[in-house]
Design a protein around this nucleic acid. Structure first.
Lengths: 235, 235
DNA sequence: TAAAAATATTAAGAAAACATTAACCTTTGG
DNA sequence: CCAAAGGTTAATGTTTTCTTAATATTTTTA
């Protein structure tokens, strides 16, 4: 994260948008203001943002659609929804999509700033996607070419899928450490619910089959907690 | 973090407190309900909580004072304030103290649950600094690897269950001190009733069997009060 | 010392977590 | 527009852990 947090603001009412932008700037943030969802999505693809603030009611692409699209690109970036609609249903929908806040208009700018700071404070330690993309990871006799989705064992190459690669990367970069189910799910799937948990089981099974070739590696389950890639050096 | 998040709830209105506790329990959380700030502070010192929910208006020690005290003990644990007062000033005060949420009554339980989950999710991502952290506690000749649910005695490893680990952790972090049945039950089971009490007896028995290997450790019963892990250095 | 309360022990039953395989969508490249 | 691959959901079986129950023992109190 840069020194001054960079916010992406999508708000179609230009007067409110401008006011917010100015106040947030004074509060020490860098703001990129977009007038609709489509523009915001483009901006997000181009830049790097620490937090998003989306009006829910916008033309072209509303705040929820926008958030859903953003979540496909980035599982982690915090999202705050702004709306005139205080309905319970809408609020819950906002959280379900993976929003962090749901603020109903009218709201105080001071309060918004306080909430932004609270969120940034608790996300600032979150691991950023590894900038120096390490191409090859290894453990035991297994090498994984993350970018090309290939694993190499005893000179033999095998292609693996995107999800397999992500999961394996997570295990190898934290080998011998317990990864809780929740941590794995959020890092690989971006959500933590019943189905993604079943999914994880399926992929654990796939990885175990892949790692059968490597006697020094084993994915062990810690019942009720999660999994650990154990590297047995003695083997 | 354990599988079921553990919440500390301080609410002086017993009817609201009970209702919340029940709803949160059904949502899959373990709750420790305290009826005032002083009691909550004590509970916080004894147990380990993933998130705190404090009513602002409470006798003895209000929610803000309580939060300030907690912040001295733990700079990161998320705090949610509940209050009937929706004044701007109060809200900002809540955030300034380092609160993560400020919810005004009346509020929907569903919304509260959604917000709790959003916050917990944020704190679940892999953080580089904690990924490698392996919590090992020790007493006598016994070492307990809390994260991996393993105890080590004389170089011998034994796997233990989630509940065994939690209970043992509680004993070791308070060794030579009496832990009342009630404190143990609330911290490990999140409830204090007839059945959980029988359960505790069962687990005391399990731990005693584990600790048989260690002549310097003994779980002693103080009849009518609770239990104590006695560490006998001379042995 | 007998009755009551609290604690201890073991085992059976229930529930939760995990593993495995297959079916079913969804996306994507020809 | 089809086929292949990857991802998700479903179904089912197994293992582990947790809870409840049943019964025995110890400690306190009347």
């Amino acid at each position: 994260m840069e020194q001054t947090p960079h916010l992406l603001l999508a708000e179609d009412e230009s007067s409110l948008g401008f006011l917010l932008k100015e106040n947030l700037r004074l509060a020490g943030f860098k703001i990129n203001l977009c007038k609709d969802g489509a523009e915001a999505l483009e901006a997000f693809k181009t830049g790097k943002f620490d937090l998003c603030i989306f009006d829910v009611n916008m033309p072209k692409k509303d705040g929820f659609e926008l958030a859903a699209d953003i979540r496909l690109l980035d599982k982690f970036v915090p999202i705050i929804f702004l709306t005139a609609n205080s309905s319970e249903e809408d609020k819950l929908k906002g959280f379900e999509i993976g929003g962090d806040e749901y603020i109903t208009k009218p709201f105080s700018t001071q309060e918004l700033i306080a909430r932004i700071k609270a969120i940034i404070k608790r996300t600032q330690f979150v691991k950023p996607e590894i900038a120096t993309e390490q191409k090859i990871l290894s453990a035991g006799i297994t090498e994984v070419d993350i970018t090309n989705h290939v694993i190499i064992q005893n000179g033999q190459e095998k292609r693996i899928s995107n999800t397999e690669a992500e999961l394996l990367k997570l295990f190898i970069t934290h080998k011998n450490n317990l990864l809780t189910r929740s941590v794995i799910l959020l890092n690989v799937w971006g959500r933590d619910d019943f189905y993604s948990a079943r999914n994880l089981d399926v992929y654990i099974n796939k990885l175990r089959k892949l790692l059968k070739e490597d006697p020094s590696l084993e994915i062990v389950n810690i019942h009720g907690s999660g999994f650990k890639l154990a590297e047995n050096v003695g083997a």
